[in-house]
Write a protein that binds this DNA or RNA. Structure first.
Lengths: 156, 156
DNA sequence: TCATCTATTGGCAGATTCTGCCAAAATGCA
DNA sequence: TGCATTTTGGCAGAATCTGCCAATAGATGA
């Protein structure tokens, strides 16, 4: 992982469909070592995949909300069951296990406020073992970075 | 926007570097109409770009936190200044304007807890107009979807 | 300083893919 | 049904990919 790798990551986060030739030109290499570096980054698990970015509103999901959940207990069964159910709900875009208290926070999208309410009350609320739910809406997006600020040196 | 477009979006969210031939095979088209549909989705702004997904931990950012901020007032100057500063901080991955109260919520990454504290206290805290800051750490990631559940019909 | 060894690079070439163009097929409408 | 419009499939020249090999750069130790 050197400065060239970092530059490759930066460029590929900006445009993940660049041609290997274009990429190699941007990072100052010839195509074949450039391709090898990309393959190495993929094999090392640093690049985990590529994806098309899709406009959330244009796809009919104008509503974004955050849901915070506290479980009634943290037995293995409750936790596993909860996390498995969350993983299945495709309107839940991500979910974090929060430190300090047995709390989850997840980002949820919906086609309307009604749908959002339905989703929370009829799907999420019904998962066993939930002690409490808090919900908050996003009014708008101020910033949405499309990648990490990767650099060559990485202190553990 | 029909079922074929939806399938294209679904497949490209799963693997944004598929060859046009592979993509066309997966969606059941021949390459040339498939490419034209992709170009149309790009031109319509539905596909906003492509990106490489990078492993956050392997890149040296094991810490994820959420920061909630309340502004002291919502004059244009304060709001613009705040949002402009946030946009510059590359450790702030995203930031939402929350409904109900003048609140922002942002996701922040750091190389360590120390760095996180430094970032919050020395960079974010210093932005003018902040009334209060609340912070919470993520202990781990339960789910991280790589795309929206796009479908053909989209109710407004 | 120099010799040696290792890792990385650049160029080459056959195979694959891209992509603009045109005719054919499918679809929608009256 | 018949017409107009949209979408599709195939073709072909141009561009790109990618495995292989020799050459280069950088590090190591005497």
């Amino acid at each position: 992982m050197d400065a060239t790798d970092a530059k490759i990551l930066k460029v590929l986060q900006r445009d993940g469909r660049l041609t290997n030739q274009e990429l190699s030109a941007e990072v100052g290499l010839s195509p074949s070592p450039c391709l090898r570096r990309v393959r190495n980054l993929e094999a090392a698990g640093i690049i985990t995949g590529y994806t098309a970015l899709v406009d959330q509103k244009l796809c009919g999901f104008p509503v974004t909300g955050f849901v915070r959940i506290r479980l009634a207990n943290h037995s293995d069964e409750t936790v596993r069951g909860f996390e498995a159910r969350i993983a299945e709900i495709e309107h839940v875009l991500d979910c974090y296990l929060m430190a300090g208290g047995e709390d989850y926070q997840m980002k949820v999208i919906a086609r309307s406020l009604d749908d959002y309410e339905q989703l929370v009350r009829k799907t999420i609320q019904k998962i066993p073992g939930i002690a409490s739910i808090e919900t908050s809406f996003a009014y708008g997006v101020v910033k949405h970075a499309r990648g990490l600020p990767v650099s060559a040196e990485m202190r553990p």
